[in-house]
Design a protein around this nucleic acid. Structure first.
Length: 293
DNA sequence: CTCCAGGGATCAG
DNA sequence: CTGATCCATGGA
């Protein structure tokens, strides 16, 4: 993608952004560490930095941001250098049922988030709701991370919570996940879990290594691989994904996770992760309709 | 009050 | 291997 960013005071302005929508990207359930200011503006904590960002009239404004941060962090974080036009054409070709939802969500990007924060966040995500997950991520950051603004903190790295124990996590109301979080910290600090090793490993090996962590199963492992390890063929299957795929591809009949996973692999292959994101949007849209009568 | 959440561990068969 | 139950917590 051709991207020209120009400086305006302390701010950075990016024009001619194709296939990018800030709100769609932040609200599609892949990230929990941000605050929505309004429809067009968000405050994000990532990679130890705070970013206030606004999208209006086809341009993206990164407030008070040096150019080197765009190059080193945000360009990668927002996945700005990838051609999503090509990806969307492939997905609609393989599954014409998704044409409308892909068009409606034509600006979704899969973020490249930090490994440790993603690992901890998706352990928290199990059997939990998105607002609650966001609240717990914020609590952990406030307690053990670095202060970035009046109200926002960085998510702590493993070293910063080295001495945090199960009871400390439980005090934050993480519930039965407290032990899981401890195990994750322990395995990262010991080197049993190492992100570079995971990144270079084949998908299945990577998934198996992640599933050695307590509280990490197939779904959470695939989220971590997709959102923080660059494995875009990963395909997390949660309750929403199961429901929508049974409806779209199996005539509404219940299927095993393996059957659904096999179909995803056959249908979308290396683009599985992207397809999953549109399917998730589809499922949640239907859920919303159902809940509103 | 009950039900459920971007699931996984554990146990029964 | 598949299926049922339990797990903390909070909001609907």
């Amino acid at each position: 993608m051709i991207m020209n960013a120009e400086k305006k005071g302390k701010d950075l302005i990016i024009k001619e952004l194709k296939d990018f929508d800030l709100a769609q990207t932040m609200e599609c359930g892949q990230c929990f560490h941000f605050v929505r200011v309004d429809d067009e503006e968000y405050e994000i904590s990532a990679y130890g930095k705070f970013l206030r960002v606004r999208q209006e009239k086809g341009k993206l404004v990164l407030f008070d941001t040096p150019k080197k941060d765009l190059e080193n962090i945000w360009k990668g974080y927002f996945d700005l250098e990838r051609d999503y036009g090509k990806i969307k054409r492939f997905i609609v070709k393989r599954s014409p049922e998704l044409k409308d939802i892909v068009k409606k969500n034509n600006g979704i990007r899969i973020l490249n988030q930090e490994f440790f924060e993603t690992l901890m966040s998706f352990i928290i995500s199990q059997n939990n709701r998105i607002p609650r997950i966001k609240s717990l991520v914020a609590s952990i950051s406030e307690k053990w991370g670095n202060r970035l603004t009046d109200t926002m903190y960085s998510f702590p790295d493993a070293k910063q919570i080295e001495k945090v124990c199960e009871d400390d996590f439980r005090d934050l109301k993480t519930g039965f996940r407290a032990a899981y979080l401890c195990d994750a910290v322990k395995k990262v600090l010991s080197g049993d879990i190492e992100d570079n090793k995971l990144k270079t490993a084949p998908l299945k090996e990577c998934e198996d290594m992640l599933c050695d962590i307590k509280g990490v199963g197939p779904k959470v492992a695939n989220c971590i691989m997709l959102f923080s390890l660059g494995k875009r063929e990963a395909f997390p299957i949660d309750v929403w994904m199961k429901r929508i795929m049974e409806e779209l591809y199996f005539g509404g009949k219940e299927q095993s996770l393996k059957t659904i996973s096999d179909l995803a692999k056959e249908k979308f292959g290396e683009y599985g992760g992207y397809a999953q994101q549109y399917l998730f949007a589809y499922a949640r849209e239907q859920g919303a309709v159902k809940n509103n009568g």
